[in-house]
Amino acid sequence: MAKKIILPLTDEASKDIKAGDDVLLTGIIYVARDAAHKRMIEALDQGKPLPFDIKGQTIYFMGPSPARPGQVIGSAGPTTSGRMDSYSPRLIVEGLKGMIGKGMRSVAVKEAMKQYKAVYFGAIGGTGALISKRIKKSEVIAYEELGTEAVRRLEVEDFPVTVINDIYGGDLYEEGKAKYRIG
């Protein structure tokens, strides 16, 4: 049975979830990929504000396909998170509490998550049609010129994810593989 979490992700809610748990997220998430991350880090380096207040927030690594008329958003599944590994620890220090993507994270990201109590959620790659139905509102809030890579603010309802890395150092990819590995 999936646990329901209302965003923003609180430390209390994070304490309650472990690697492998199914979770349904409801509330606001922000969307950013490689190009937007690069710009956000540049903004921090220059002492400029980020396009949104990152404290306590959750970022979804995603670049949607175009919406057809009448659709909130096009296909909206996760992209490979590893490409954000060089940027994520800095954002975690700035207060980022949740990340949604797919694929393994680096040791540095996992250490930062443990130290600052942040959680990494996995969404199922390739299920962009299903996920799009859980997005109720989508708005580009920064870097519009990046097109599909612009920063978006999404309102989501029962957005389906699985906890990959919890605040205790648990890692579903390692634990799952170890459990089913033969030889």
Binding site: S65, Q71, G125, T127, G128, L130
Partner: peptide
């Protein structure tokens, strides 16, 4: 979920994957 996604994709003309 992958199979459910394929249904939604076909029905609503949303790409399987973005």
């Amino acid at each position: 979920r992958i199979l459910e996604n394929a249904d939604i994709s076909a029905r609503e003309k949303i790409p399987l994957c973005q």
